[in-house]
Nucleic acid binder design. Structure first.
Lengths: 142, 142
DNA sequence: TTGCGTGCAAACTTTTTGCATAAAG
DNA sequence: CTTTATGCAAAAAGTTTGCACGCAA
């Protein structure tokens, strides 16, 4: 079982900024860019700085509270809250509208075990993304 | 069936630089960063410029000769020659030594079809990467 | 001769860092 | 008090662009 976020934060000083970043990420259904996190928080907390957001994100990733997600079309990193293993999921990314659509559960788990046995690699994580046209975009144009 | 590289290049002017980039990428078993391509080619062709490499890579990606690969630990893009569907493969990335180890074939194909049926998404590509410790690093230290 | 491909330098974007100050414990 | 967290500005790192020139066709 995974530790809860408050457990993972144990030992650190409290920080309003950090709490706001966590709360914001928890509300999202798709990963967010650092810049977007910054601008969003800025609406209600005009003092936070971009470098603080970067530093908070770095910490959250180290504590395994957030994950980095990378996409093929974008040079900037996206982040999302780590889901525990049975809510953990992946995304389909529409190559037209760029929407990221969550896939309900993770279909990779069994594969992972198989490959582990076959190769002797000790697998601790994975990344899985699908690209294509979402229903909306497939119906439009053409 | 896929078009061959010379077929894909049809219509473009010949370019020594582009040929060297393609030849270099074809020799690799793991994807390369633009900077590495640049430095490698520079050893024998001291005149090529970094922006030319970027422009060549952009063209190769548009022509579907090369692919972009993104990894979680690195902010820079990596590129590799597009493999046709039956040699197409994925990587296990060692979180310690950062080595990228190819997984022989693509175990995702069936999954893809399944998800396509279930969701109505028209899947055109995917990304699949495994993270963990390679055999070497697992034996070392600890 | 036309215009694609290239080198060079400058601009841009994203991320990291140094330093002085504020706030937490 | 001591140390972590923060803001600001500057620096780095990666990528893109403008311009003039060379070379392929």
């Amino acid at each position: 079982m995974q530790k809860s976020i408050p457990e993972k934060l144990k030992g650190l000083r409290t920080s309003k900024n950090r709490d706001e970043v966590i709360a914001l990420l928890q509300k999202q259904s798709a990963p967010m860019a650092v810049e977007d996190i910054y601008e969003n928080i800025r609406k209600t907390n005009s003092k936070i700085s971009l470098s603080t957001v970067y530093r908070i994100i770095e910490k959250l990733v180290n504590l395994n509270i957030a994950h980095k997600v990378t996409t093929l079309d974008d040079n900037k990193a996206l982040y999302e809250i780590v889901k525990d293993s049975h809510t953990h999921h992946h995304y389909m990314i529409c190559v037209k509208c760029k929407k990221m659509i969550p896939i309900d559960d993770c279909p990779v788990k069994e594969l992972e075990k198989e490959i582990e046995d076959k190769t002797g690699f000790n697998i601790t994580g994975h990344k899985f993304e699908l690209y294509g046209e979402c229903e909306n975009c497939a119906h439009k144009d053409k």
